[in-house]
Amino acid sequence: MKGPFPAICILSAILWTGAAIADLPVLSTANNSDVLQRIDMPDPHYQMGLQKAVLAPNEVKARHMHTGPEVGYVLDGEIIITMDGQPEKRIKAGESFQYLAFAPHVSKAGPQGATVLATWVVEKAKSFAVPAP
């Protein structure tokens, strides 16, 4: 095939593919969370933590659960939380959320990303977040 038609088709395919890729969620691979503080609780087996997480636009935190309860507050942007057996929840800047221990869920940042401040309680020496079955 000669002429501009093949080049136009190839260029269209490249542009369409680029647009489709831009809409895909970004799977979280970087550690973009900072533990700001850990405080020993009155019960010497437990510790409270304060953590700030910055999520890129459309970033997805894969299905996981926390080993203790968590209370979170969205400082900026929006997150979408999907928990087993429940409708998806959208939490916007200025709103809060909470998880019970061992509640499997997926968290995704909105199209503008999100900054979240979270407080949690866990047994000392245990990881706060673990993969969910």
Rank of each mutant, 00 (worst) to 15 (best):
S96C: 12
M48Q: 09
S96E: 12
A53T: 15
E95D: 14
G68H: 07
P57A: 12
L27S: 09
V54K: 05
M48L: 10
W120R: 02
V130I: 14
H64V: 00
H66W: 02
F128L: 07
Y46G: 04
L24Q: 06
V106C: 09
G85R: 03
E70S: 06
W16G: 02
A7P: 00
I10P: 00
H45D: 15
G110K: 07
Q112R: 14
V121R: 03
N32C: 05
G113W: 10
D40Y: 00
G68D: 09
I10Y: 10
T29D: 13
M65H: 13
A125E: 15
L75H: 04
V60N: 09
A114N: 08
M48P: 01
I8C: 07
R90E: 14
I21V: 13
F5L: 15
V26P: 02
K52T: 11
I80S: 15
H45M: 10
G77S: 10
H66R: 01
H105F: 02
M48F: 10
A125R: 13
T67Q: 12
N31D: 15
Q37G: 00
P6R: 03
K126W: 05
K2E: 04
V130S: 03
D43K: 08
K61Y: 14
Q86H: 07
P25C: 05
G113C: 09
D40G: 07
I21T: 04
A30S: 06
P111C: 01
